[in-house]
């Protein structure tokens, strides 16, 4: 985490003085971007750097669905299962993924490549159904487009 501190310092400069606590979410996000998850040593480092209670960081890690304490597959496929996506074929995509990957939501394929999850509305309902792969939205998905996408993922 140490090499990220100059970056964290720059971010801090745009916050009001004394509001280090606010940096918990952006720092955790940045650490996760690099490591893929948040390790114990990262929590130690943040407690030191921000001066916030350890419990605050642990609560944040367990509260927000995007944060994780353990590694996942190289590709994280997240299918939106909310109203508009369900109305435009998300359930067929989910059934297809389960069959194709051989795992259900919350699980990782045996080769460790792909983690599959479901998510709630991604704010992209006009181009439903939506599948998120890592940070990228794939919109107006069909089973055919999903197959092509799965082939592309290395």
């Amino acid at each position: 985490m140490k090499h990220l501190i100059p970056e964290f310092d720059r971010l801090k400069a745009r916050f009001p003085a004394g509001c280090e606590s606010s940096l918990v979410l952006p720092c955790v996000r940045r650490i996760q971007e690099e490591r893929g998850f948040v390790a114990d040593s990262d929590i130690d480092g943040l407690v030191d750097y921000l001066g916030v209670p350890r419990i605050q960081i642990e609560e944040v890690l367990s509260y927000y669905t995007q944060f994780r304490r353990a590694p996942i597959g190289r590709w994280h496929l997240q299918t939106c299962r909310n109203v508009s996506c369900s109305m435009c074929g998300a359930e067929r995509l989910m059934a297809h993924l389960r069959e194709h990957l051989g795992v259900g939501p919350g699980e990782t394929t045996a080769d460790g490549r792909i983690t599959y999850s479901t998510v709630e509305c991604l704010g992209s309902c006009g181009t439903a159904p939506v599948v998120m792969v890592n940070d990228t939205y794939h919109e107006s998905m069909t089973v055919e487009k999903l197959d092509a996408l799965l082939k592309e993922l290395g």
Partner: peptide
């Protein structure tokens, strides 16, 4: 970081305080 109630104004501010 993925939470619907963070759209509620006071929940949003709790989140913005890093909690």
């Amino acid at each position: 970081a993925g939470s619907y109630v963070c759209g509620e104004a006071s929940g949003l501010l709790s989140s913005l305080e890093g909690k």
